[in-house]
Amino acid sequence: MKRNTMRDYLRLLGTFFRVSLLGELAYRANFWLQAIESLIELGTALALVSVVFTYTQSLNGWHASELLILIGTYFLIGGAINMIITPGMSRLIEQVRLGTLDYLLTKPEEAQLLVSIQRLDLWKLLDLLFGLALLVAAASWHGSWPSPLQILAFALTLLAGAIIVYSFVLFLATLSFWYVRVENILVIFESMYEAGRWPVDIYPGWLRATLTFIVPVAFAVTVPAEALTARLTWLALLGTLALAALALLVTRLFWRFAVRHYSGASS
C-alpha cells in the first residue's frame, strides 16, 4: 500500500464531490424540495423558540440570541453529518451485508477514507448554509461579536464534535462486520440528535449523560455553541479536543482490526 499524503485525500474528496454533483444535477427538482424541507424544519425550530421566550427571558442562562446561535450550530453540524457521514455509513452497512465491500477493499486507496466519503448527500449542504446564516444573524443580534479567540475555540470544538460523531458512527457501522442488523442503531442516533436542538444542560442528569457519552450529541452542538457564547472553560475545551483524538484513534484501531477479520459475505 502506498503512503498517502493529505493532498491525496483532499483530491479524492474533490473527485467524489464532483461525481455526486454530476449525479444530483440530473434531478434538479430535488434541490428545491430539499430547500423547502430544510426551511420547514428551520421554521419549526424558530417558532418553538419564539414561543418559549415569550414566557421567559433566559432558558437556564441562555438568552434568545444565544439559543439561536445554538440552533445555528445544530443545523450547521447536522447538515455536515447528513451530507457526508451518515450516507457513507449506511452504505457501508449495506455493502457488508451484500458482500460488495470486497470491491472497495481491493482498491489501492485507504479503505477507511473511501468508506467514509463514498456517498455524499449534496443537497444537505443547504442545512449547513442555513445554519451558517442563522449563526451570523444571531451573532449580530447578540450585540457583541465574538472575539477571535472565541471564534477559534468555536472552530476547534466544531471540528472536534464532527470527529467525535464520525468516530462514533463509524464504530457502530463497523460492528456490522459481526452483527448484520446495525442499521437500526444509526436510526437511533439520528432521532437522538434532535435532542441537540436545546442546550443539554436543561435535561435531567440521566438524559444529559446519555446525550454526552452514549450518543455524543452534546459534543457536536452544545459545546461549540458554548465556545461561541463564552461559556466554555479551558478545561472543557482541552477535554473535548483530547476526547476527539482518543475517539478517532480507538475507531481507527477498531476499523483495522475489523478489516483484518473481514471474510466477505457472498459469492
Binding site: 418559549v52 421567559t56 432558558l59 437556564n60 436545546w198 435535561y203
Partner: peptide, 18 residues
Amino acid sequence: ALGPAVSVSVWSTVARNE
C-alpha cells in the same frame, strides 16, 4: 419517548426560571 422528554425538560426549565 424522546419528544415528550425534550418538551418536558424545556418547559420545566422555563417553569423553574419563572
